[in-house]
Amino acid sequence: MPENQNFNPEDGLPISKVRAGKVSKYKIEHFVAPLDETPLQAVDSVKETGKPLSMWAEAWRSLRKQPLFIISAVLILAVIVVAAFPQLFSSQDPTYCALENSNEPGRAGHIMGFNLQGCDIYARVIYGTRASLLVGIFTTLIVVVVGGALGALAGFYGGWIDAILARLGDIFFALPLILGAIIVMQLPAFRDNRSVWTVIVTLAIFGWPQLARITRGAVIEARDADYVKASRALGLSRFHSLVKHVIPNSLAPIIVVATVNLGVYIVAEATLSFLGVGLPPDVMSWGNDISLAQQQLRSNPMMLMWPALFLSVTVLSFIMLGDAVRDALDPKARKGA
């Protein structure tokens, strides 16, 4: 299995100078050290210019066999089904709240009991899935795309691009979410159309610098690696080597932060609601219910437990998915597994 170790030309060099681990990660390494591979593959790689394709394809091949991936995919699918068709899972009307039922424990037809206002907790959790999932997934996506792109550019090119993007990030970082969110939600386009999407955009506006910073760090780490230098020496343009070599090698921390963010955003939506600029009142969400539970922590802990449990399972499945994808992208881990 560890044949490439023996043939690695850099073997034995002072470790502090060489991040050999990065070198041997992807197929493209073979430009540098073609000796360690079977001739067939080496020939294949030379003929094609779109190497990353084969990397992704290989990752997918390994991914779909992983139990971690299969479990997480099934869980995520289940959550998506609940989000899309909540009425299949609850016959109760989540908007019907009668104070007579306030904080009543569970009973037939209302298995999780009632919240302070006398609304059915189970129905609210089920119907809250859609908004929470949308907020979590789309905020994460926007943040990864925008923050990732800006961070990668800043880290890779350095110089004035880095200076401008990083300092812009600093300013956004320092803006209090409370203040920013209140203002953003006052813009006529937002104020008059309050919805899941306005929440997503608001969270994304204040969320991107964090991911930009993480990406920038990872890209700075990867940009000076020898395989990047090699790819440049072989005539690949700077931009191409960024996209084809640097970014794929910087994905691990991005995936980690993005999957944890997913959960944090779902809860953060409650922050906006708490500030009075969150979802419209008729839209249910886990974050909102979790924040409502605070007052009732001592008298009705169930109000906190159920939405928090659903949220945990969702975040867990995305964290597992992230782990599986990362493993699949890392050839060494794959071989070792």
Binding site: D11, V18, R19, G21, K22, P253, I255, D323, K332, A333
Partner: peptide, 12 residues
């Protein structure tokens, strides 16, 4: 994640 990535690295 970083540790997992690095523990199978050549320098290790």
């Amino acid at each position: 994640t970083s540790v997992i990535e690095n523990k199978s690295a050549d320098f290790v």
